Computed example of a mutant assay.
Amino acid sequence: MQPAQPGERVQIRPAKLPDSHSTTLVKTEKLHILRLVVSAGKEIPQHSAPGELIVQCLEGRIAFSCLERSQELAGGDLLYVPDSEPHSLTGLEDSVLLLTIFLTPREKGEVSEVDETSMESFPASDPPSWTGTTIS
């Protein structure tokens, strides 16, 4: 799935869990919007992103850790994470998250921590669609 073009309608709910994959919905220089599909028991280890995050749990349940505490997010819950704040998560059920990243400007050619972390967080058999990108 290619990121949406301006004005293009996007379906954020996957057709079915758990066979769906994480994907980039919108990607610009200042904004990334991702649909993350997290299977029950899946752990994404602690990492940080170069910008402010809005994590919305669309369905399912996850344990999300940041700001020195862990809390459960379920369908309909939203969480704000400050710029570069370390965070991690674990799927408590098969879950779908909408992740909005308001990117902090970085040097030309630098690989985004979001891209780098994503490459490390997903098994090789289930890579997200945005791996390996650089800023040109």
Rank of each mutant, 00 (worst) to 15 (best):
I44N: 08
K16R: 13
A49K: 07
I44P: 00
E120N: 14
E59C: 05
L97V: 06
S112W: 00
L25W: 05
D94W: 11
L78F: 10
G75M: 11
E107T: 14
L17T: 06
T131G: 12
H32N: 12
T131K: 07
I135E: 14
L67N: 11
G41N: 05
H47E: 02
L53S: 07
L36C: 10
H21D: 11
E107S: 15
G132N: 02
R69K: 15
E68A: 12
E93V: 03
I33Y: 01
V38N: 01
A40I: 06
P123F: 08
E59V: 04
H87P: 05
F102Q: 08
S112D: 10
D126K: 11
S84W: 00
E110M: 12
M1E: 12
I62D: 02
H32E: 09
S129E: 10
Q2P: 04
D94Y: 08
D77E: 03
G60F: 08
I135R: 14
E120K: 15
R13M: 14
T117G: 15
E29R: 11
E59I: 05
I12Q: 08
P45G: 04
Q71V: 01
T133F: 02
V55A: 04
L67K: 13
S20H: 07
R35D: 03
P128G: 02
F64H: 15
P86E: 02
S129C: 09
P82M: 03
S84I: 01
S95W: 00
P105Y: 01
H21C: 13
H47P: 01
T100A: 14
G91S: 02
A40K: 15
E93T: 11
Q56H: 12
A124I: 09
D19R: 13
G41H: 09
I135Q: 15
E93L: 09
A124F: 05
E59M: 04
